[in-house]
Amino acid sequence: MNAASESALCPSAVNHQSLKVLAQWLKHHGSKQVRTTDPRRLLAGRYPQGLISEAEMQALMAVWH
């Protein structure tokens, strides 16, 4: 690796204030988003309409839960 990429991996190269801002954002938004995600909506948005049948969607939902 070169010196530039090595410094990017070094934790001391990260701005402390930036880490605090990121931590606050994750505290307020990160975990809440994971908990409230609708799996059916997530799958429907990820795959083209008609690719997954209703029966397949039901099976995926059963596995999800």
Rank of each mutant, 00 (worst) to 15 (best):
D38Y: 02
A13T: 04
M1A: 15
V21C: 07
N2S: 10
Q49L: 07
S7H: 03
L9H: 08
V21W: 10
N2E: 02
Q33G: 05
R41D: 07
M61L: 15
M57F: 04
H28Y: 05
D38E: 12
H65V: 14
R35W: 04
L42A: 15
L43K: 11
T37C: 13
S7A: 14
K32L: 05
H16G: 01
P48I: 00
P48D: 01
Q49K: 12
Q24R: 15
P39A: 10
T36K: 10
T37H: 06
Y47F: 11
G45A: 03
A8W: 00
A55C: 01
R41P: 00
I52D: 00
K27D: 12
Q24C: 08
P48W: 07
Q24H: 14
H65E: 15
A4F: 05
A44Y: 01
K20N: 09
R35A: 14
P11W: 01
A62M: 10
A3C: 02
P39N: 08
E6L: 14
A62V: 08
W64C: 05
N15P: 05
R46W: 12
H28P: 03
T36H: 09
K27Y: 05
L19D: 01
L42E: 00
N2W: 02
P11L: 03
D38R: 02
S7D: 10
S12C: 05
G50R: 01
Q58H: 09
G30W: 03
E56S: 15
K32I: 04
V21S: 10
E54S: 04
L43C: 08
Q33L: 10
C10Q: 09
I52F: 08
L19Q: 06
P11F: 09
S31E: 12
M1T: 07
Q17W: 06
A8E: 08
S31M: 12
P39R: 07
H28C: 11
L26T: 08
A13G: 05
V63L: 13
C10Y: 11
A8F: 09
W25Y: 13
R46L: 12
R40S: 09
H28W: 08
P39D: 06
G45R: 02
P48A: 11
A59C: 01
T36V: 11
S18N: 11
A62I: 06
S18T: 06
H28E: 15
E6D: 14
L60C: 11
P48V: 03
L26E: 14
G30I: 01
A8L: 05
V34G: 10
W64T: 04
S53I: 03
A62Q: 15
A4G: 01
K20P: 00
A8T: 08
D38H: 03
L9K: 15
K20D: 04
A44T: 06
S5V: 04
W64V: 08
A44G: 02
P39F: 12
V14N: 10
P48N: 03
A59H: 02
V14L: 13
L42S: 07
L9R: 08
L22F: 13
I52H: 00
K27I: 02
P39T: 06
R46N: 03
R41Y: 07
A23L: 11
E6F: 09
T36D: 06
P11V: 12
A13N: 14
S31I: 11
L22Q: 14
D38A: 03
M57I: 11
H16S: 07
L9Q: 14
